[in-house]
Nucleic acid binder design. Structure first.
Lengths: 219, 219
DNA sequence: CGGCATCCTCTTTGATACTG
DNA sequence: CAGTATCAAAGAGGATGCCG
């Protein structure tokens, strides 16, 4: 039905690209790193623009290469769940490096670019830290894009996942670029509010997890 | 003449892939990370199988994106030199992560895969270290593939570059997989020799730089 | 509805030949 | 040396149909 195209080079980079270098492939891995396990339709939702046959092809290839597994969830759910194998999870450093390199390019995106709020999860996991390990737990609800994202800081650990928070100490609402810049500490609170962010609740909860570096970004 | 295809997603990973996600692109970056500056024909030699129009296209795109620069070398050389910009050099963590992930896949390659010995340079830079900083300098010449590669250890630093050594303390000759496995400490000396490697000179020079971990690989 | 497969069109790639 | 030109083959994108 298809043949794996290969660079056919004795080089680790080339071998990696043989497996994950095709269009959409690493974005599929991103989806699975964020959520843990996804249904086919979850993947389609998180990968706006992908053709359905292409998604099916990529999933089959990734399965053959041992990067993902498909698991038939038992009734009454009766759906197929895709998730990364341990080998697939080892792609995390690759995604981290690429995401970091690409971050400065976000500024050049048109305003109508696609956005799914769960895409914030991995960058937030990289950049946020609990700076007050001994403080009481705090919860932040981030409202931008298609669904809320919850940030919980407690005991020196930060947990981030898609979905609404129960009783957030603070909520942050606004367009993705402003909300993201605020959370990543690239904008201070006042500037973010000036640019349309709405912060409802205790701003100290934000300061607890934001990266310390505040660059002097303007635009 | 062309339009940059974009995933159009507000996501750092997707933005990175917009710029360096096309086929061959990261391999071009590899070539430039290894050598520093390359002529068009050097790139063709290091990228066996690439179509020349594709190479020209990719170079133009990378230049537009600020990843590489082209520099007209003055007479009497009178050639164009391509090299990475600082922004392009920041792709090093990406290549490192991908190369590391792909390394285990090298074993599955057919024996007639393409090989250029300078492809060893980056992995060697990652894995080798000078374990005897106070010892006298040593030089290793690696002979496999199309040209020799030189490893120099001195004062705690290891320098690796393509090209012959002047007066090597030891030379290692053999097929790429065996030579590479020996240098990376995945095979011990005896096993490597059994499998066709020829080590001429002082094997202690090898031990000085090899990674300490010796895994129990067999095949 | 979830998980694809098919069909069709359009773009990108690969191979080769040729040029300033 | 550093490309451009040309053309066939493969892949991507989009719409729709199928089947449990």
């Amino acid at each position: 039905m298809f043949d794996m195209r290969s660079y056919d080079q004795y080089c680790g980079l080339a071998r990696a690209l043989d497996v994950v270098g095709d269009r959409w492939t690493l974005l599929i891995v991103r989806e699975l790193l964020i959520g843990g396990a996804c249904r086919y339709t979850d993947l389609q939702h998180g990968l706006p623009g992908i053709a359905t046959n292409l998604l099916a092809d990529r999933l089959r290839q990734l399965e053959e290469q041992g990067v993902i597994t498909r698991e038939a969830a038992p009734p009454p759910v009766a759906t197929t769940l895709f998730h990364l194998t341990p080998r697939g999870e080892e792609l995390w450093p690759v995604l981290r490096a690429l995401g970091r390199w690409g971050a400065p390019l976000l500024a050049e995106l048109p305003d109508d670019a696609e956005f799914r709020s769960h895409w914030l999860v991995l960058p937030l996991r990289i950049h946020l830290a609990d700076h007050v390990p001994d403080g009481p737990p705090v919860t932040i609800e981030v409202r931008t894009g298609d669904q809320p994202v919850t940030v919980e800081a407690a005991g020196g650990e930060v947990r981030i996942h898609a979905g609404a928070a129960v009783a957030p100490d603070v909520t942050v609402t606004g367009a993705p670029p402003v909300v993201a810049s605020l959370l990543f500490g690239e904008l201070d609170l006042d500037t973010a509010v000036e640019r349309g962010a709405v912060v409802d609740g205790d701003p100290a909860a934000l300061a607890r997890v934001q990266p310390k570096v505040v660059s002097s970004n303007s635009r």
